[in-house]
Design a protein around this nucleic acid. Structure first.
Lengths: 256, 256
DNA sequence: CGAGGAGTTGAAGCAGGTCAAGCGCTGTGG
DNA sequence: CCACAGCGCTTGACCTGCTTCAACTCCTCG
């Protein structure tokens, strides 16, 4: 099992960015040693903040105005809507995540994005992302890591949807979220924040609402999870991992 | 419907890279106007070529030696294997595609990659990719476009697996491949090259082999496709598009 | 106090999985 | 040159995990 501890006190205590930093800076700061200059640039990128109300869309599939968003507070989803009203949620985004890191200039957004709860996000001109690659090599590696990680997350989503039965899909997703939130220090013990409804969960897992409910009940009755409003407790991470064949290495840290 | 014509003769005849270029240069060349310098660099990247025999793996999930590969000839797959021997194929790669464009240095490969047929590919040090971002701005935009496109393709795969019934999944995939091959000029009329077995197809679509076969038969009997060894003819693209809710804009060109 | 969203549970139907058998190639070795 | 092994494909029969439909409970908010 990979350790996802956030700090290695003796070594890095002086090198971590200050505590009041943005989640993105904290996330990258726990992975690589950015210069003060780079941290300043990254914080400066996030000056232009926007607030989105829970449930609201802030990117619509087909949009031609391309903006990159850095998520500062709250949870968002990327999704695709079908003609009969059904949805497939592609992934969740949590604080520190970047939406639209790679943008097709002059092309259309290929998915929609919506706020799960109240959101604070920074709107960034995608040209400034390319600027990072030109001027800030450490940051560039960090963003490359973010990209590779997004790929791994979406790939894991495809594996869930294509090859896992319902309960395993659910367990797999819970573990993914648990490890991702662990990295940004948002888990409270084994309690995992779950701000979405069961319908959202169903649209993520490619299941019906009813069967999602029964799958949750199944894991609960097996003693693997405990459920309360907006939170799920992972009672047996090892068993959940085995059931779902989850590989935590896909979300592992890196170091330069 | 988006036009994916390769050339706009009057305008671009002098600006297209020479015909003997690598598929990647031709692909990017049909989208943006690279300088001679940039084309030269991109070709130089591909000097170190490797040949892989049909069926062989060239990346294994968990590998820590990270290399970027540019596909020059043949088809490859990215896939994840499960413990009971089942697979989920995440995506197909065709000539001009890049595997491992964004790499976690010092981290593990999150998927395996294998050759569908005999492959010629260029092995590239991923550090040279970061170099592109620093030194060649047009190329950098081109790579950013490639990345966004890979995301869209994988997102579409998630939609297929999560929300489409079997025949629609198949139709959707056929259209994706058709548009992608159209861009690199590899379709012969309505005939689409399909070098994979039905088992590979099943592992892509998240279906059993038997049901994949029946879905193919279903589309054939509906008069939507015609099947022969290694090729499928798309007899009614409009009907296939409607059946599968395929959105060709996700694979559209861009221009700077 | 009533309405509407979120969750839960039961019952019935069906899309797709599994098991099994057989066909037609192609390649290989006696 | 033939035999036979093996892979890819096809089809039939049966089974099951998941969907759909429907009803009911809670909780919250106006």
């Amino acid at each position: 099992m990979t350790s996802i501890s956030n700090s290695d006190a003796a070594l890095s205590i002086d090198l971590q960015p200050p505590a009041e930093s943005s989640p993105l800076v904290r996330k990258l700061g726990s992975l690589c040693l950015m210069t003060a200059d780079e941290i300043e640039f990254l914080e400066g990128l996030q000056n232009n903040t926007v607030v989105i109300e829970a449930g609201a869309d802030f990117v619509a599939e087909g949009d031609t105005r391309s903006t990159t968003f850095i998520l500062i507070e709250g949870w968002a989803i990327r999704y695709t809507a079908l003609s009969d009203g059904r949805r497939q949620i592609l992934s969740f985004a949590v604080p520190g995540d970047i939406l639209g890191l790679h943008i097709n200039f002059n092309a259309q957004a290929t998915y929609s994005a919506a706020a799960m709860n109240k959101l604070k996000l920074a709107a960034v001109d995608p040209r400034r992302i390319l600027e990072i690659y030109q001027k800030y090599p450490i940051l560039a590696s960090g963003l490359s890591w973010c990209t590779a990680r997004e790929f791994a997350i979406l790939g894991d989503q495809a594996v869930r949807l294509g090859r896992l039965p319902a309960r395993a899909r659910l367990a797999h997703l819970l573990l993914e979220l648990w490890y991702r939130l662990e990295l940004i220090g948002k888990n409270e013990g084994r309690w995992l924040e779950m701000p979405m409804t069961q319908l959202d969960l169903a649209d993520t897992l490619g299941l019906s609402l009813v069967h999602t409910n029964r799958s949750l009940a199944g894991l609960r009755r097996s003693g693997l999870i405990e459920v309360k409003k907006d939170y799920i407790k992972l009672l047996d991470i090892e068993a959940l991992t085995e059931l779902s064949e989850f590989n935590p290495d896909h979300l592992a840290e890196f170091s330069i």
